[in-house]
Design a protein around this nucleic acid. Structure first.
Lengths: 377, 377
DNA sequence: CTGAAAGCGCTAACAA
DNA sequence: TTGTTAGCGCTTTCAG
């Protein structure tokens, strides 16, 4: 650790060759005589040589690195200066139960996308830089985006990770792939990877109608500005129409993707005795909130009311009853994004690349009722 | 997108100054006359100039980037070539219940550490590169480590992210901070950030003895090679000794940190009628497996037997009964690791930095019995 | 198959 | 305050 880091020059000298040959053994070993190659490799690990990524990237004009921007998971709260203090301590607290919102949902969602990106990046020999978008102000975000974008060949942005205007500026300077959705008025200009929201929802709702003969169906939707939410609602309407029901007559509740809000709404519906036969929710969080309210009121699912979600988050598989939902292929979203980005980097002026990944409708107890334990096993 | 990326030279020409002045406006704006600064900034965004990270790093001899290595979450399985195909599809499947292992636990754990690193890196103006250690062979890992380490100023390694020998080589060439634990025979040589495993466990076990008067206590441990597991066992023994019990007489079961194995072990104990008064597990996964087995057998927790875990994973707060456990400060682990790394980078030859973070014993229903719903609220 | 030399885009003395 | 210039460590023609 005391001596400076060795460079190609050191290796070259140590092996008695020129730096060009050192470079070659690293990049195109087959173009070097086995003998020289050997002595160079020997020198390399004798010196503990690690090629400088910066120099490499500068000379090669490629960083072999891509960046992934994920949306803020706020509630990280206090940006207090962190103090390094060693303390062999263990506090003890009585941890009371607290019903209500667990905020780990998104974490898992993003985590899986990240995994997909990593997986594919790894296969492509790329390094992955991540930014969880912790910056609170637009200025902060801009700073981070600036820092990162100079260090990478291209970037992947999960929807709502940064303000649209930053996005617009960036995509002009750098290959950029969006996951899930792009600014709604500029969709065609972006390289895009998304899932079949519309089809997933329509398939699910058609099943509800066909298999469970429901007709009074209500819909709980997300925020206004969410393209995902829009597409899902389209699918919902499409299914009703296809089965001869009038979508305009189906009540819409604005749950804003929030478990808490959904919980409150469900309580209101219960107290007003306004429950439909089926409540189709635009995401799992809301559906879980609804399930929670129903459970507290002692209302049976699905006997009295069917509830469905969308996304396929882990919790949907743990709830009681387990939630019928539409599972998104998160891992594949990540992988596809990287593939798309790589294609774009090697192919700067092809037209916008757009991919739509298939989803899976998971029928579970919240609509099917009791299911046996994996009959095939 | 058609024209090449602009450089300092372009900006300088466009603004009618020298490249040095451009560089200054970026790094030390106060050292440039406001007028010139303005015209330069104008030129910068007229051209959409983004400084090259590589060139910068090369010249400044710092990348302003650090890397984080997280352990493999295997079961990613198939490294099949990923095919980009658009298909507006939705498959429907009946999703039967499947008890048993959910593998999302670790994901959340790592995720939180990652968040902590990001948070602190962001505050320090550093970019963060991550590697989830997807390489299956040592060779793969070595490749990735090589690629990444050339691109960063230092790295943070979560325990068991890479083989010890790779670790040993790396730490000689690069500032390196370990999270959780280092190769057991070389602890003092590493910069380390960890939690009070020993103290956490002893505090918990003392509580069990003092408040619940148990004396027949059994221990379920992790893998042989886990320093964490060792420390926790030490704490366990310490508590028994402190209360006049003989640790050597407490049965140890090797659950290997696996939920499934713990499940099986618990079943055996049940069928042999060998249940202790309290079963202390070295991590939450195992405790959950035990809880599961107990539940299936209709054995009441904590009335008939107390069960405790360690880590404080999300699921420990959702199980029935909720699990008494020792919560690790995951976010702070990440933050502390970055702090430590920064210190080390600015201070190459100070002695090894070691930090121990306090833990929190969370008393919940699996030892306390029914608890009211947050009485303070 | 190997070496010499010209950059890659930026930073940081040193001059002016 | 601004400009000149010498690298940073590597890749990549082009000769040999």
């Amino acid at each position: 650790m005391v001596d400076k880091k060795p460079t190609v020059y050191d290796v070259a000298r140590d092996a008695g060759v020129s730096i060009a040959t050192v470079s070659r053994t690293l990049r195109t070993p087959e173009a070097v005589r086995p003998q020289t190659r050997q002595s160079i490799n020997a020198a390399i690990d004798r010196l503990g040589y690690i090629p400088s990524g910066s120099a490499r990237s500068l000379a090669a004009r490629r960083t072999k690195t891509i960046a992934l921007f994920l949306p803020t998971i706020d509630e990280l709260g206090s940006l207090t200066d962190f103090q390094l203090t060693t303390s062999d301590e263990a506090k003890t607290v009585l941890d009371y139960p607290h019903h209500g919102v667990h905020n780990h949902y998104d974490a898992l969602y993003f985590d899986t996308v990240l995994r997909g990106c990593e997986l594919e990046a790894w296969r492509q020999g790329l390094s992955l830089m991540v930014s969880l978008g912790l910056g609170y102000t637009d200025e902060d975000v801009a700073r981070v985006v600036g820092e990162v974008s100079g260090k990478v060949d291209g970037i992947i942005v999960l929807a709502r990770s940064m303000p649209d205007h930053v996005l617009q500026v960036l995509r002009r300077r750098l290959p950029l792939v969006m996951i899930a959705s792009a600014p709604s008025n500029h969709e065609e200009e972006f390289d895009l990877v998304r899932v079949s929201n519309r089809k997933g929802m329509s398939t699910l709702v058609e099943h509800l109608i066909d298999a469970h003969h429901v007709s009074r169906i209500a819909y709980m939707t997300g925020p206004e500005d969410s393209p995902d939410s829009d597409k899902r609602y389209e699918g919902f309407c499409e299914a009703l129409t296809a089965r001869g029901l009038n979508p305009a007559a189906a009540p819409i509740y604005r749950g804003l993707f929030s478990q808490q809000i959904a919980f409150d709404i469900a309580n209101t519906l219960i107290s007003q005795d306004q429950l439909p036969q089926a409540l189709v929710c635009a995401n799992d969080q809301m559906a879980l909130g609804v399930l929670n309210a129903l459970d507290k009121a002692g209302i049976k699912v699905p006997e009295r009311i069917i509830v469905t979600g969308f996304d396929g988050i882990t919790e949907s598989d743990i709830s009681a009853p387990r939630l019928t939902t539409v599972k998104q292929p998160m891992l594949d979203l990540g992988r596809a994004a990287v593939e798309t980005l790589v294609t774009r980097v090697n192919n700067p002026d092809s037209p916008a690349l757009s991919t739509e990944l298939p989803v899976t409708v998971l029928l579970r107890e919240s609509c099917e009722g009791p299911l046996p334990e994996c009959p095939s096993a």
